[in-house]
Each structure stands twice: as C-alpha cells, then as structure tokens.
Computed example of a mutant assay.
Amino acid sequence: MRTKDENKEIIIREKAIEMIVNEGFDGLSMHKLAKAANISASTIYIYYKNREDLLNKLYAFATDSFMEATLAGFDPESDFETGLWKQWTNRLDHILKYPLLYRFLEQFKNSPLITKQTSLQEDIFRKAMQRFVEHAVCKKEIVELPPEVFWALAYGPFYTLVKFHLDNAAMSGRPFNFNKDMLRLAFRHTMRGIARREA
C-alpha cells in the first residue's frame, strides 16, 4: 500500500479547488487534476475514492478552515459590538488570504453533490455563535430577532462588500476599491440596525 505524502495532498487539494472554482465540478477529471498537480492519476486515488469523495473532503476542509479562522481570538461572551467586529475582521482576513477557498464554498455550499456531515469544528462554531447571540440578547445589547433576520442584518452588509471586492465591481459596474474605512462605515450602520436602544 502506498503511503500518503502530506505535501502531495496539499498540492492536489489546492489544484482541485482552483480548477473547480474556474471550471466547475463538471469540468474536473482526475486526469486533468493529475496533470495540473504534476502527479499520476493513480496517486490521487490514494487520498480520494472518486470525484464525489474529493469534492466532499475538499468542502469539509474548506468549511473547517473557515470556521477555525472565524473563531481565532473570538470570545462569545464579549460585548456584542466587539465580538461582531472580531467576526467581521476574522472572516475578512481569511477570505482575503484564501479567496479561492471562499469562492469554492460559495459555489458548492448548496450543491446536491455535497453530503454534509457535522464536524467537531462545526459543532464548536455553532455553539460559539449561538452563545454569542444569546449573551448579547440576555445583556440587552441587541434586540431579539428571528435567526434569519439577525443574519441578514449582522452579516449581509459584510458579505455584500466582500462580493464587490472579489468581483472588483460595484453595482454600477465600475471598479470597486475596498478599504477598512468602508468596512467600518458599513459596520457602524449595521450596529444601528440591531443594537437595542433605551426607551
């Protein structure tokens, strides 16, 4: 039995994500991937059973990587404004560092090819996010909202700016110049929408 080489696995993973983002999963074959990674096609099967297994393992890796980065230095019991800003900046840092990984997640998160299985990292992430919101509501820092409305208000502006940045195009089609000042502006208005105001 051939042993696994971590460096080869990383190369396969990186090339596969690049090809899937640029060409779609239908355009990916083990032969094309092997050629792009400069290895034999049989080597890929040491790490992945088939294309579906490849996609699911890539998705699990990308998801765990993103959630782990999101929780770095994050305290679910911090005050809401501090915690949400940490969430925005953690997410942004990871997206800017690994834009292909983010595009891959966005492209395939609702794909029928994905067999979602909850990982330990996802469980940790969900509990941290739930605790963060519950703590803020309990401390009367934010209004209590349905989860979908909360998500739309708390993260919608962030992900819209991220999309403009990655597409390098604003709504008008003009080039989009993203900066932290713009992020701060969006954040301030986001906080106004969900922060509890004293009667």
Rank of each mutant, 00 (worst) to 15 (best):
2 R>D: 13
8 K>Q: 14
9 E>I: 12
10 I>R: 13
12 I>S: 00
12 I>V: 13
14 E>H: 05
15 K>T: 08
16 A>Q: 04
16 A>R: 03
20 I>G: 09
21 V>A: 08
22 N>T: 05
22 N>C: 04
24 G>R: 04
24 G>K: 09
30 M>N: 01
31 H>I: 02
33 L>T: 02
34 A>K: 03
34 A>V: 01
35 K>Q: 04
36 A>L: 04
36 A>C: 05
41 A>W: 01
43 T>P: 02
43 T>A: 15
44 I>L: 08
46 I>Q: 12
47 Y>D: 12
48 Y>V: 05
48 Y>A: 00
48 Y>K: 03
50 N>T: 00
51 R>H: 03
53 D>T: 02
56 N>V: 04
57 K>G: 00
58 L>P: 06
58 L>C: 00
59 Y>R: 09
60 A>S: 07
60 A>P: 02
60 A>V: 03
61 F>L: 01
65 S>W: 02
66 F>H: 06
66 F>S: 06
67 M>H: 01
68 E>I: 00
70 T>Q: 05
70 T>E: 06
71 L>E: 03
73 G>Q: 00
73 G>K: 01
76 P>E: 06
76 P>G: 02
79 D>R: 05
80 F>C: 04
80 F>E: 03
81 E>A: 12
83 G>H: 03
83 G>N: 01
84 L>V: 02
84 L>A: 03
86 K>Y: 09
88 W>S: 02
88 W>K: 04
88 W>P: 10
91 R>S: 12
95 I>V: 07
95 I>G: 08
96 L>K: 08
97 K>Y: 07
97 K>G: 02
97 K>C: 10
98 Y>N: 15
99 P>L: 03
103 R>E: 08
103 R>D: 13
103 R>S: 03
106 E>Q: 09
109 K>E: 00
110 N>R: 11
112 P>C: 07
114 I>M: 09
116 K>R: 09
117 Q>K: 06
118 T>K: 12
118 T>A: 09
119 S>K: 08
123 D>F: 05
124 I>M: 01
124 I>E: 09
124 I>C: 06
127 K>Y: 00
127 K>G: 01
128 A>K: 02
128 A>Y: 07
129 M>P: 10
129 M>N: 13
129 M>Q: 14
130 Q>M: 05
131 R>A: 04
131 R>Y: 07
135 H>F: 00
135 H>I: 04
136 A>F: 10
138 C>H: 14
138 C>S: 15
139 K>F: 06
140 K>R: 15
142 I>R: 10
143 V>Y: 13
145 L>D: 10
147 P>Y: 08
147 P>G: 10
147 P>L: 06
152 A>Q: 15
153 L>Q: 14
153 L>G: 14
154 A>W: 15
155 Y>T: 11
157 P>R: 12
158 F>P: 05
160 T>W: 15
161 L>V: 12
163 K>P: 03
163 K>S: 13
164 F>W: 10
167 D>G: 08
168 N>E: 14
168 N>Q: 15
169 A>E: 13
171 M>E: 10
172 S>D: 11
175 P>S: 14
176 F>S: 05
177 N>T: 02
177 N>L: 05
178 F>V: 10
178 F>H: 08
179 N>R: 08
182 M>P: 10
184 R>K: 11
187 F>R: 14
187 F>M: 10
188 R>A: 14
190 T>H: 14
193 G>C: 15
193 G>N: 15
196 R>T: 08
198 E>F: 11
198 E>R: 13
